[in-house]
Every structure is written in structure tokens, then in C-alpha cells.
């Protein structure tokens, strides 16, 4: 509800300006006098000052409730919380057609300066981690992945040696010149053109999915002066050493894992189980008939055992555990 007599915005801004100056500890007698003058100059100023005091009090009620000793934890929580999924991004997810799941636990690591130069990041099977890099980019590693950072004066290069990463490129304000952001894999070089994208290193090729912006693609064996293909937002490409060709993901949302879920639409069960196998140890077998069944939905990755256990309720299949690490899926 608007207040009965909300003071003019410009007066309120000025009032907060004074509040800050008076609190800054360097407020001398001259500042005090100037403030008194301002306050008396106009009834609107007095009203604005009263409003500023109200806001100050409301804030003290909240901030004062936080313990001093553990103040560090409160600050960290609010900072880290803000760096994770933003409200804007959450709203975007809620506004698309597919079902979504809540955010998952990311381990957000801020690196010390000496670690930034030649850092290696990796995850174990079933683990996912996310980092804010020195240039402001966000790097997320999916299960069983490894990446090396080679940032220097001319480029921001990430070398993907195993698994899958999602990158949200930062503005790189720390650097005087605009350094390109690149991802190198065995198959070639990808360059961000202001963007958000996922790169996955498969056995035979690299899979690129662009969520926002665009990415330039350069296969490893392309001739030096050859024109680079550009992948636009919403497209998926397979990059081999010799060429980049449009591809599809067989019903898998390529960015689902960054929200901790397998998001699939009409995917073959065989492909789904192969995908699931990336997140857990052991073998998942599937008989050929069952492999052709189709599946849709959002499956959380934090408990892959439970995820397997629900399959018989959505498909006519049976799950047999031969050992803890050997699972067989067959028609019922």
C-alpha cells in the first residue's frame, strides 16, 4: 500500500544521501550544519528525512536480528545465495512449458588469486560443482568431468579433458582488453560470442548446445583460414575433428543437469539408462525390447537409486539387482 503522503523521490534520495554521509564517521560540524540547513529548507525534506529514518529502523529490525559472532555466515549466505540461480533465471524457467525442479546444492567455490592462474577443476562420478571464475564467468561441471583453466593476457581458455561443462560467460571487467572466452576439446575449438552454452565430450565427438547467444566452432582439422561455423541459441551441434554438423540430443534437455535433473521428452529408455550410467558407478543392463520404450519427465539426479526404482511405475519393466553394482532392466 502506498503511504498516505509519500515524499517526492528526489527528496528521499537526498535524505538517504545525508543519512549515509552522517553515518560515515567522517561527518564534521560543517556537514552537520549543512544537513540541518537542508532539512529546514523545505517541509518536503523533513518528510523525506522521516521516511529515511523509518526505512533505517525497518532495516535495523532485520539486520539487528542477525548474530554478531556468526555475522560471517550471514554475509556468506546472502552473497553465495545471490550468485546461484537468480530470480530472473528462475522466473524464465517457470515460464517455459516443461516442468522444472528446484535448485540443487551447488558447491560454489571462489578461488584465491594464486589458484586462478592454472587451476584444474574436476568432479567425481555423481558429483556436480559450480564455480565463479576470476573473469566473472560461471563454470559448472557435470558428473565425472575435468577442465583446465588457461587464462592469460590474450584469451580465457578452458580445456575440457573429460565429461561436460556449462559456461555462462562473464563480462571480464578485470581485463583491459576484451579477451575471447574459448573452450578447447580433443575435437576442436569453441569460442563464445557473449553467451551461455554446454559442451560435452563424448567417446567419438563433442556435443555443443547453445542456450543463449552464439558460439563459433572450429574443428581441429579445419584449414587455417576456413570460415568458422556459428551455432545459434537453441541449436545443438556435433563437433568432430573434421566438421561440425547439426545434431539432436535424442530428447534430452542439454542444460537439465545444471538444475540437478535429467529433463527428457520422448527419450528411448536405452538412451536414458546410458545417460543415467554417467551419474552412478556400476553397470546398467537393458534388454533390447525394453530399450525401445519411450519416457518423458523430470528426474532428479540426487538419488539415482530411487530414480531407477520408480521406472516400473511408469513403464512395463522390471528392475533386478544382481549385485549392488549390476542392475538389469527387462520387460515385465
Amino acid at each position: 500500500m502506498p503511504q498516505p503522503a509519500t515524499p517526492a523521490p528526489s527528496a528521499v534520495r537526498q535524505a538517504f544521501g545525508w543519512m549515509v554521509r552522517l553515518q560515515s564517521g567522517a561527518a564534521d560540524a560543517r556537514t552537520q550544519r549543512a544537513f540541518a540547513q537542508w532539512r529546514n529548507a523545505d517541509p518536503e525534506h523533513e518528510r523525506a528525512w522521516q521516511r529515511a529514518q523509518e526505512v533505517g529502523q525497518a532495516l535495523r529490525a532485520d539486520f539487528g536480528a542477525l548474530p554478531q559472532g556468526a555475522g560471517g555466515a550471514s554475509f556468506e549466505a546472502l552473497q553465495a545465495g545471490a550468485q546461484r540461480l537468480s530470480r530472473r533465471r528462475l522466473l524464465a524457467k517457470l515460464s517455459v512449458g516443461a516442468a522444472v525442479v528446484g535448485p540443487v546444492a551447488w558447491l560454489t567455490g571462489e578461488l584465491a588469486p594464486w589458484q586462478r592462474l592454472a587451476a584444474d577443476y574436476s568432479t567425481a562420478k555423481g558429483e556436480r560443482r559450480s564455480f565463479t571464475l576470476a573473469d566473472g564467468s560461471t563454470l559448472a561441471l557435470n558428473t565425472d568431468s575435468a577442465v583446465q583453466l588457461r587464462f592469460d593476457g590474450t584469451q580465457r581458455l578452458l580445456v575440457l579433458t573429460r565429461g561436460e561443462i556449462a559456461l555462462l560467460s562473464g563480462v571480464d571487467t578485470a581485463s583491459a582488453i576484451k579477451r575471447p572466452l574459448r573452450v578447447q576439446t580433443r575435437d576442436g575449438l569453441l569460442e563464445a560470442l557473449g553467451t551461455q552454452f554446454v559442451v560435452r565430450l563424448d567417446a567419438d565427438d563433442s556435443l555443443l548446445s547453445v542456450e543463449e547467444g552464439a558460439v563459433a566452432m572450429q574443428p581441429a582439422l579445419a584449414a587455417a583460414g576456413a570460415e568458422r561455423g556459428v551455432a545459434r541459441a537453441g541449436t545443438v551441434y556435433r563437433l568432430s575433428r573434421s566438421e561440425a554438423v547439426p545434431a539432436d540430443t535424442g530428447g534430452l534437455d542439454p542444460t537439465g543437469w545444471t538444475d540437478g535433473a535429467l529433463v527428457i521428452r520422448d527419450m528411448r529408455l536405452g538412451d536414458f539408462l546410458a545417460e543415467l550410467g554417467r551419474y552412478r558407478s556400476g553397470h546398467i543392463g537393458c534388454d533390447p525390447r525394453a530399450a525401445e520404450l519411450r519416457l518423458s519427465g523430470v528426474y532428479r539426479l540426487d538419488d539415482t537409486e530411487r530414480l531407477l526404482a520408480v521406472l516400473p511405475s511408469v513403464l512395463p519393466v522390471r528392475i533386478d539387482y544382481r549385485t549392488r553394482f549390476w542392475v538389469q532392466v527387462s520387460m515385465r
Binding site: G69, A70, G72, A73, S74, E76, A77, L78, A80, G81, R84, L85, R87, L90, L91, L94, S95, G102, P103, A105, L107, T108
Partner: peptide
Amino acid sequence: KGLVIDSWRRQEIERAYREALALQPEQLA
């Protein structure tokens, strides 16, 4: 939508807070 986002953000804040606490000496918790 606003309420859904509030609840997700609250979960995130809680998780971040517990992570930050875990890095502190236990007797301060």
C-alpha cells in the same frame, strides 16, 4: 510464480548458510 521462487530462494539461502556455518568453529554455531 513469485511464491515458488521465494521458496526456492529460501532453500538456496538456507543451504548457503549451513555451508558457511560448517566452515566455522562448532562452538560458534
